[in-house]
């Protein structure tokens, strides 16, 4: 990643934090920096600018982990496994952050930190899957075998995830904004009533957090490559 991009994303996200927290929320917006109220969400709507991009980055991270896993199985190059683990570990971190930020928001919107809403359940499953993924990895010593088996596991787990989309709504209706049980927004989250200026900040945040994720990811991969290199040197000596 280029240095200018790192500086750019730092400045970019600083601007988003300022906008997300400090822009006033009023009934009737007068100037460009005033967000309108969203009924039922009020000031809590600011969470959209931080929680949703983090959840998005989680999905990106896990998808990348799975894709690099598949490439590893085809090419058998251990570097792809390093990339796969790096994305998975960052994905797990982001997933925890998304769960925590979501739960805090849920406490003040739904009345409890955790109530097995379909989205909460699916993020919980993601945590379980990648928890199991790292447990599996720690149980295998041999490098290539570990890479193969964990890639296979992430593929197997990956194909079951779509089933939650069909299964969960039958168990309970959702409260999450954008799901069917929510009167405010029928359809995906993005369709719900966001003012154009808020929508801009939201998308800017989405881009910013994705770039930030790629920066963290590149650091993680490079660190793992160095680690592996050092390990090989000590083994040969």
């Amino acid at each position: 990643m280029k240095t200018w991009l790192k500086i750019a994303v730092s400045v970019w996200l600083t601007g988003i934090i300022i906008a997300g927290i400090a822009f006033p929320m009023v009934k009737v917006p007068q100037t460009w920096y005033e967000f309108p109220f969203i009924p039922g969400l009020e000031e809590k709507a600011r969470n959209i600018i931080f929680h949703v991009p983090i959840s998005w980055a989680t999905v990106v991270a896990f998808a990348m982990s799975m894709i690099y896993g598949i490439i590893y199985l085809r090419k058998k190059d251990i570097d792809y496994d390093l990339r796969s683990v790096s994305s998975a570990s960052l994905g797990l971190l982001l997933c925890i952050l998304a769960t925590v930020t979501g739960a805090i928001w849920a406490k003040f919107n739904w009345g409890s930190f955790w109530n097995w809403d379909p989205r909460q359940t699916s993020i919980f499953i993601l945590l379980l899957i990648y928890g199991a993924y790292f447990v599996l990895r720690s149980a295998i010593d041999e490098e290539e075998r570990r890479a193969t088996l964990s890639s296979v596991y992430s593929i197997i787990a990956g194909v079951t995830v779509p089933f939650f989309i069909f299964v969960m709504p039958r168990i309970m209706s959702g409260l999450h904004p954008g799901s069917l049980g929510d009167e405010q927004g029928k359809g995906p989250v993005l369709e719900f009533k966001m003012a154009p200026n808020m929508l801009m900040v939201f998308f800017a945040s989405l881009i910013g957090f994705t770039v930030l994720y790629f920066w963290m990811y590149s650091l993680k991969v490079r660190q793992m490559r160095i680690e592996r290199h050092v390990q090989q040197i000590t083994e040969t000596h």
Partner: peptide, 9 residues
């Protein structure tokens, strides 16, 4: 541990 998340649906 491995089976539970996969079999949950």
């Amino acid at each position: 541990v491995l089976a539970f998340p996969i079999l949950l649906p």
